[in-house]
C-alpha cells in the first residue's frame, strides 16, 4: 500500500483547526515569553535579592528540567493545590515561561552591553533609573537580540507540539486523531509537517519585517 493523499481532504477540517490552535498557542506563548523575558531580565539584574533568589530558583527549574515535565506540573500538579487551568492555558503558560527564561538570558546580556553613557545621558535629563531602563536601555537591548529571540520562537513553535500530551487539539494531536480514523500515519504526519513548515515561514517573515523596521534606525 503506497502513499495515498486522497484521504486527506475528508479530514482537512480537523487539521486546519489544529493549525489554528497551534498558531494561537504559539503566538500567545511567544508574546508571554517576550515580555516575560524582559521582566525576568530586569528582576535578575536589578531586583532586590528577596525577589531575585526565588526567581533564580524558578529559572533553574525551567532551564534544567524537561518542558514535558513542566507542562505536567502546571496542568496536573496545580490542580492539587486548587488551580485548575484549562489545558490550552496551561500549555501557553508552560511554553511561555519556559522560553521567557531563555529570552531573559539573552536580554540580560544585551542590557549589560548597552553603553553606560546611555543610562547616564538619560539620568542627566532627569529620568529615574526605572524610566531610563524602560525608555532608553531596554529598547536598545531588545533591538540587539531580535535575531536570537527569533530563533527561540521557532524552537517554541516546534515544542508547542508537546502540549498535545495534556490534551490540547493542536496540529500534532489533530493529525493523530485523523490517523486514528484512517490508519494513514505517513500521509497525515507529512501533512502536519508541511503545515508546521508553513507556520514557520510565517514566523520568519514576521521576524524579518521587525528586523527591517529596526534597521532603519541604525
Amino acid at each position: 500500500m503506497g502513499l495515498d493523499f486522497t484521504v486527506v481532504p475528508a479530514h482537512i477540517d480537523i487539521i486546519l483547526l489544529g493549525c489554528l490552535w497551534t498558531i494561537a498557542i504559539a503566538v500567545a506563548a511567544a508574546v508571554l515569553s517576550f515580555f516575560g523575558g524582559i521582566v525576568f531580565a530586569v528582576i535578575a539584574l536589578y531586583g532586590p535579592w528577596i525577589i531575585r533568589l526565588p526567581f533564580r530558583l524558578l529559572e533553574w527549574v525551567f532551564m534544567g528540567t524537561p518542558l514535558l515535565l513542566q507542562l505536567f506540573l502546571i496542568y496536573f500538579g496545580l490542580v492539587q493545590i486548587g488551580i485548575d487551568l484549562p489545558a490550552f492555558v496551561a500549555g501557553i503558560i508552560g511554553l511561555g515561561l519556559h522560553f521567557a527564561v531563555y529570552n531573559s538570558e539573552l536580554i540580560q546580556t544585551a542590557i549589560l552591553s548597552v553603553d553606560k553613557g546611555q543610562m547616564e545621558a538619560a539620568r542627566t535629563v532627569g529620568l529615574s533609573r526605572g524610566q531610563a531602563l524602560r525608555k532608553v536601555v531596554i529598547p536598545q537591548a531588545v533591538r540587539d537580540v531580535i535575531p536570537p529571540i527569533g530563533n527561540n520562537m521557532i524552537a517554541l513553535l516546534k515544542d508547542s507540539a508537546l502540549v498535545s500530551v495534556i490534551g490540547v487539539s493542536e496540529l500534532t494531536l489533530s493529525a493523530q486523531r485523523a490517523i486514528g480514523a484512517t490508519y494513514r500515519p505517513f500521509e497525515f504526519y507529512l501533512v502536519a509537517a508541511a503545515f508546521y513548515y508553513v507556520i514557520n515561514l510565517g514566523m520568519e517573515w514576521v521576524q524579518r519585517r521587525i528586523e527591517r523596521r529596526i534597521s532603519i534606525s541604525r
Binding site: D115, G117, Q118, E120, A121, A122, T124, V125, V136, P139, Q140, R143, S217, R218
Partner: peptide
C-alpha cells in the same frame, strides 16, 4: 542641570 558629553550619548533608537 543640562549636561553634554564627549561622546554625545544620543539615544540611537530615537
Amino acid at each position: 542641570i543640562g549636561m553634554v558629553f564627549q561622546h554625545f550619548n544620543l539615544f540611537p533608537h530615537l
